[in-house]
Computed example of a mutant assay.
Amino acid sequence: MDTKVDTGIAQGDRNAIAEGLGRVLADTYTLYLKTHNYHWNVTGPQFRALHLMFEEQYRELWAATDEIAERIRALGYYAPGTYAEYAKLTSIQEDNGVPSADQMVANLVKGHETVVKTARDLFQLADEAKDEVSADLMVQRMDASEKTAWMLRSMIE
């Protein structure tokens, strides 16, 4: 869908940015779901620390999904919103079974690094199209995921 949007960003650029935002949304939502799953299912000596940390992280990711989806809408497109769409768009692998606590942490590090890469790719496009709002949103996502990856990495190093 493309409605009449005239904010100074060319239609082709808006379309490409919206598609990129869809990939960032899919990665973020998939990472949210994985993190929430780990919150529910973590076990072991670090249970309490990880349970609480995963909750902080999934809440932040949940809020981010709304910001990303609303940016897609502001550009004049519909945001993807089904598991099937996310499965096609995401770069994050689902788990088979319940991993160990250390593997959960390692998986989340990889997931956050994936979000950073997806956001970084879109940042370049948004910046070139002079879409400062989308570029800024990608900076926020990169910052949040880089910091979270660092904190998670510190738990298993």
Rank of each mutant, 00 (worst) to 15 (best):
M1D: 11
T3I: 12
V5S: 03
V5D: 02
V5Q: 01
T7S: 12
I9C: 05
A10T: 08
A10M: 02
A10I: 05
Q11R: 15
Q11Y: 15
G12S: 15
R14K: 02
A16P: 15
E19T: 14
G20Q: 14
R23G: 10
V24R: 01
V24Y: 00
V24D: 00
L25E: 10
A26H: 01
D27K: 00
T30P: 02
K34A: 10
K34V: 10
T35R: 06
N37L: 10
Y38V: 10
H39L: 04
W40M: 05
G44N: 07
P45A: 14
Q46N: 15
F47W: 11
R48H: 14
R48S: 13
A49Q: 14
L50H: 13
L52C: 03
F54M: 00
Y58V: 08
R59C: 11
E60D: 14
L61H: 05
W62G: 13
W62F: 15
A63Q: 12
A63R: 08
A64T: 08
T65S: 10
D66R: 02
E67F: 11
E67G: 12
E67Y: 11
I68Q: 02
R73D: 01
L75G: 00
L75K: 01
G76V: 05
Y77K: 02
P80S: 11
G81N: 00
T82M: 00
T82I: 03
T82D: 00
Y83Q: 14
Y83M: 15
A84Y: 13
A87T: 10
K88P: 04
T90P: 15
I92R: 07
Q93H: 09
E94M: 03
V98N: 09
V98W: 06
S100E: 11
S100Q: 08
A101Q: 01
M104V: 09
V105H: 04
V105N: 04
A106K: 02
A106D: 06
A106E: 09
K110G: 03
G111A: 10
H112P: 05
H112K: 05
V115T: 09
V116D: 14
V116I: 15
T118Y: 00
R120P: 04
R120D: 13
F123M: 03
D127T: 06
D127S: 07
E128L: 06
E128Y: 03
K130M: 07
K130D: 08
D131C: 05
D131Q: 06
S134K: 02
L137T: 10
L137M: 10
M138R: 03
M138F: 02
D143G: 09
A144C: 05
S145A: 14
E146R: 12
T148N: 08
T148S: 11
T148E: 09
T148L: 07
W150S: 07
L152K: 04
L152G: 12
R153T: 11
R153D: 11
S154Y: 02
M155Y: 04
